[in-house]
């Protein structure tokens, strides 16, 4: 886990801060050993009790054929749940679907989020109103917008099919959006991008505020045009934030849930299932909590590996 550190961000005073300053501070003015612990304690204790302990418990459950009823004995099955998941074609379909969803959503969300953040970072009329409008999808309930999108993508009489058959005659046949794998994932991804773009935008806006004006001025004096300034000043200036957003969006893509559950329910024939809908069914429909827990740890391992790769990749490029 040592690699899960944020890459050094090259913010305002970039050249002077190649090395992390924290060691310098704490070493030269030796604070007592318990000071960092005192700062970290409230949060860590709360976290360990409410998340850490259930996490450990869930890990334990993953090694059992777990009996839902506490008075019934659970059977220890070792790694059976894990080997079962590794050989379960439906689980891997769900993982592949999460991968497809990730590829469909994350790059577009990040690019569009950054694009509009840059546009909205500068003064323009009604800027606050626009910022609010972009944020509105983030704050509307997942359940409600998932159902809304389901209605938009309904095959007979849905707004999307109306638009592509009647409004702009791209096709004569209505597309069965939610009744096949590819288009189903596209529809879910459309909702995903719409819903999380505003979130990226807010984080990027906060980071763009931290990019020093003097750097733009310097670049401007060097004759850099807008695009060059974006590449040479803006992007390096928000590198840390970009990584933060990227990592969280990737985690979010693997955790896509409510939209799939409500729009396709993983169908038809399990072809649009994603890891969380599959786990949810195993746990709460089929009461197989051991299996669901094992799958969640396999998923977590995959996410950890991908996150580490992202940290590595971005640090090396720095």
């Amino acid at each position: 886990m040592t690699t899960t550190r944020l890459a050094p961000s090259t913010a305002a005073t970039a050249p002077a801060r190649r090395k992390r300053p924290n060691r310098a501070v704490s070493a030269r003015h030796a604070t007592r050993w318990w000071v960092p612990w005192a700062f970290a304690a409230p949060g860590m204790i709360l976290f360990i009790v409410v998340v850490g302990y259930p996490l450990l418990r869930s890990l334990q459950i993953s090694f059992y054929q777990w009996a839902v009823l506490p008075t019934d004995a659970s059977t220890f099955v070792g790694f059976d749940n894990y080997t079962r998941a590794l050989g379960d074609a439906e689980f891997w379909t769900s993982m592949a679907n999460a991968g497809i969803y990730l590829i469909l959503t994350v790059p577009l969300t990040l690019i569009l989020g950054l694009f509009f953040a840059v546009l909205l970072n500068a003064k323009m009329p009604a800027r606050t109103v626009f910022r609010v409008l972009f944020y509105i999808p983030v704050v509307t309930s997942w359940v409600v917008v998932s159902l809304l999108f389901k209605f938009l993508f309904v095959t007979d009489g849905g707004a999307v099919n109306w638009a592509i058959t009647d409004l702009l005659p791209l096709t004569s046949e209505p597309v069965p959006w939610l009744e096949q794998r590819g288009t189903g994932l596209v529809a879910v991804a459309a909702l995903g991008i719409w819903k999380s773009l505003g979130w990226c935008l807010v984080v990027f806006l906060a980071a763009l505020g931290g990019v020093g004006e003097e750097q733009y001025e310097a670049a401007s004096l060097d004759g850099a045009n807008a695009w060059q300034q974006f590449l040479n000043v803006t992007l390096p200036g928000i590198r840390g934030t970009f990584l933060f957003v990227l990592v969280l969006q990737v985690i979010g893509a693997f955790n896509v849930f409510a939209s799939v559950l409500l729009m396709t329910n993983g169908g038809p024939a399990g072809s649009t299932e994603v890891p969380l809908t599959y786990m949810y069914k195993q746990a709460f429909s089929f009461l197989d909590f051991g299996y669901a827990s094992a799958m969640s740890f396999i998923l977590a391992i995959i996410i950890v590996v991908i996150s580490i790769l992202q940290f590595k990749f971005f640090r090396e490029k720095n």
Partner: peptide, 23 residues
């Protein structure tokens, strides 16, 4: 600060983000 288990603890926090909450 630098302190013992800093990376372990931070890793634990990140793991909390990565484990699906439903289980």
């Amino acid at each position: 600060f630098d302190f013992r288990f800093k990376n372990v603890l931070f890793g634990l926090l990140l793991a909390g983000l990565m484990i699906p909450g439903i289980v």
